[in-house]
Computed example of a mutant assay.
Amino acid sequence: MEFPFQEPDMMLESRGNLLMLSSVSRKDSGIYQCRPLDSVGQAEVKGEVQLTVHYLDPAFVVPKDSEVMLKGENLIASCNALSSLKTVTVWYKDGKQVGYSNMLHLDDATYETSGEYVCEVTVPSLPSLHTSGSVHIIVQGGPQVVGVEEEVQLEEVAGRMVNLSCEARGHPPPSISWNIIGSQNWQEVMSKANDHMTHSMVSVKVNSDVSAVCNATNDMGTEVKVFSIKAIPRVTRTPPFSPVEGSGVIIVVIILCLLLLASLGSVLYFLHKKGKIPCGRSGKQEITKEKPTKDDIVVEMKNNPKNEDAVLLKAVNGEKKGPNDQ
């Protein structure tokens, strides 16, 4: 069996009635015919088949590799890939979609425009066919300090350390220097840079009001950022009252009072035993003899505010007998 390929005099090797094609490419597309080896003329052709090989060439990106732009400029990048079928092109930056055609428009370039842009070309009807390309965009210009405020107002307790961070974009990469007024105790604790960014951090001790100026400079200009730090006097606070500690103080005071009362009672008892303190009720006196008799007359003298005369209370002799006399 022979398989002529397009031209009658071109023969392809086969295994019996099977034709094997390896590493198929677009040049293998065409009409394939099969007929017996001993056949003569086109009238004896037994069969034919149309073979179409679909393809997608590598993506071609313009501008190629990298492109430098000035701030504010516009740029159009293109991405094309020759294919036998309809294609779809999508642009990505940092994993996010930024364009949906073979043309990418970059208008009014800023430092955020800088980066790598990747275009991916796919064939929707044959997902296995895909290709990609990329271009690196560099935006050139003077330094731009990151942050909205040109001057930052801060407050810090006197005696403490504060970290100040300054980050600047630009190409060529800017250099950062610091000018600090109001503190001699400061040092740079971090510094790093890449193709379009520089970052610096300083640690400053606040003893009084401080003014710190970050200067970002490259060949195309200079930009500054000011940090104004107001020192707040350190205030010593009285520790808060603790209920547990208060209870302990109250217990100690009560114990001291009890000890004082006990000491006072001991002194009074000692003076009473020595006869230094008379015993009796105020305003009352009792007149006694060694041994009372029946003929004795007991007289009680009372001080009456209304009547100051002495009153005879009772005569015992002959009038009333006591229980012991019966």
Rank of each mutant, 00 (worst) to 15 (best):
G142E: 07
D94R: 09
K192V: 07
V202I: 03
V311L: 05
M301G: 01
T110V: 02
Q6L: 09
C34I: 15
N80S: 13
I176R: 00
A168F: 04
G280V: 04
N185G: 01
E308P: 11
A109D: 06
P292C: 10
Q187V: 12
F227D: 15
L18W: 12
G133F: 00
S14K: 05
R15E: 14
F241D: 06
D325I: 01
N74S: 13
T110K: 11
K64T: 11
P292G: 09
I229W: 08
L129F: 00
S165H: 09
S266N: 08
I180Y: 00
H130I: 00
D195H: 05
V148L: 13
S83I: 06
H272T: 11
F227T: 08
E7N: 04
E286R: 14
G318V: 07
R234V: 10
I277G: 03
N102R: 10
F60C: 05
L129E: 02
A231W: 08
E149T: 06
T222K: 14
V316M: 08
V49D: 04
P323E: 07
G16W: 11
S183R: 02
L56Y: 01
C166R: 09
V204S: 05
E48F: 08
L164Y: 05
V61W: 03
L12Y: 03
M69W: 12
L268K: 00
N179V: 14
M11A: 11
T89Q: 07
S266P: 03
I251L: 03
S208H: 06
S175N: 10
S25I: 10
V253D: 09
E151A: 15
L129M: 05
L85E: 11
L312E: 04
S266E: 04
V53T: 02
E286K: 15
F5K: 05
G41C: 07
R281Q: 08
C79V: 06
S211N: 05
P233E: 00
D107N: 13
M10F: 12
W186L: 10
S29N: 08
K289V: 14
Y111K: 09
V298H: 13
T198W: 02
Q326N: 07
D65H: 12
G47K: 02
P239H: 06
F241M: 10
S25H: 07
L70P: 00
K276F: 12
L18V: 15
G322L: 08
V98P: 14
W186Y: 09
G246K: 13
R234H: 15
S191F: 09
